[in-house]
Amino acid sequence: MKTNDLILQTTTKVVLFIIILFSFHIFFAGHYTPGGGFVGGLLTSGAIILLMLAFDMKTVSQILPVNYIYMAATGLLFAGGTAAGALFFNVPLLTHAFGHVDLPILGDTALHTATIFDLGVFLVVVGVTMTIIQTIGEDE
């Protein structure tokens, strides 16, 4: 039976970008305020799930040709690499460095290596969540 999903699909095309933008905001807000890689990753996978609900899994895998298991592995590599990278500078494991950098437009910006660790967490959460959803959510 073919049903008409016009309202859902049109809404999804707008709401998807709002959700992804909000997830990036949550991701970068995570240092001093609530948020971080975990919640950001969950929101991004929520956006992809909304796309899967409005369209179908074949369309979504054409739009985002990503192997989510490799994505989780890349995230683990980022997180573990940031944790282990501290050992090369003769400081304890998981020590993070930060510094102030003058960027052209943004001015004086504080850059942390914790962001790279959080990016790893983000990729792991998106990868694992989408793998679970794709495995248990598909019909047949």
Binding site: M1, I26, G46, I49, L53, D56
Partner: peptide, 29 residues
């Protein structure tokens, strides 16, 4: 507030689609 709104919206859409079509995620539409 934003987070709860988004999660509630996605959950309602998923439940409604499951009730209407019998599957939540279709392989090929």
């Amino acid at each position: 507030i934003l987070l709860l709104g988004i999660l509630s919206f996605i959950g309602t859409v998923a439940f409604s689609k499951y009730l209407e079509k019998g599957v939540a995620l279709e392989r090929d539409r």
